[in-house]
Amino acid sequence: MNPNLKFDFIVNKENNTVNVKREFAANLELVWEAWTNPEILDQWWAPKPYKTRTKSMDFREGGMWLYEMFNTESKNQKECHWCKNDYIKIVHQSMFSGLDAFCDENGIVNQEMPRTQWTNLFNENGEKTLVTITAQYDSLADLEKIIEMGFKEGFTMAMENLDQYIEAKFKLRQENKTNNNARVCTYLNFDGKTEEAFLFYKSAFKTEFIGKGIERFEEIPPSVEHPPMPEAVKKMVLHVELPILGGHILMGTDAPKEMGFTLTKGNTMHICLEPESREEAERLFTELSAGGNVTMPLADMFFGAYFGEFSDKFGINWMINYHSK
């Protein structure tokens, strides 16, 4: 974790709580979306090598999130744990609370395991957002059992997953856009075949890679903030850009499961619009997303872009990405 970001973890055995203050280098809209959108939660909520997969989510007071955490390195069904969170109170972009429990795939609570009542408060401070988390337990025995199960270690890793996901996904967009001219790009995601695909496209279009050429995950500077990168990931393609016809740019990346990505039919390609002004970015986002599904609201990001992501009412995926001069 970035040492400049606040992270306090306190166990209070007098009132059976765990109290956490965790700061993120992103604005309130982005952090709130990451905590309340199941597609984004599935990318980071579970500590590695576990991964979260949402079965259903109804984010409203009285609604429920039902999800499983499974070990990506094991075929043993016992390595899968089902959980549910019954939402109690929600104040948009301010707080939400809920009662979490281990359960089965139908949401039937496991009475032998402790339940956690979460209260999460969100406060924006400039370009950072502080999330204040209280985990309440019925008894000291329940609290101690959760701690013995590795609550602190797992929760810390999940928070770092969110940092890593955001950084890996957006790091190179600013580096490769060297001017403020508008352009349209198509962003492609592959399951380890980006280099093969782009060499094929390069041959067909008879053009050359631009920017820094083929960049790989191993080029990300090592950091104590993130866990070691798996060897299988290091040689994968982090980012590549290829002009094709009429000034159109193909961009691509590998989306390895080890880095928290999940590829399914329908999310492997986005049309990325890079308008000349903030106002045009807002207009395009508002008009194109009408009747669709906003997966990341348009907002100022800590990496320097005014960025948003959505699927339109026809199921087409779009990115709006504006960089000021």
Rank of each mutant, 00 (worst) to 15 (best):
K152V: 02
A158Y: 00
D138E: 11
E144C: 04
D191A: 09
L172P: 00
E167T: 08
G154R: 00
I146Y: 01
I166T: 01
L143D: 01
N180Y: 08
K145S: 12
Y165C: 10
K169W: 08
E196Q: 12
K145T: 14
G150E: 05
A141Y: 11
K202D: 13
A141N: 10
L172M: 11
Y201P: 05
R173Y: 15
C185H: 07
I133E: 01
D142I: 13
N179L: 04
K202P: 07
F170R: 07
F151V: 11
F190I: 13
F200M: 15
F151R: 03
A158H: 04
E144F: 02
T178K: 07
N176C: 12
K193V: 07
F151L: 07
R173E: 11
C185A: 13
S203V: 13
K169F: 09
E160A: 04
I147F: 09
F200S: 15
R173Q: 15
Q164T: 06
A168L: 05
D138R: 04
L140A: 10
A182D: 09
A141G: 09
K206I: 06
D163G: 09
Y187T: 04
N161C: 05
F205T: 13
L162M: 14
C185F: 03
I166E: 04
T194Q: 01
K206P: 08
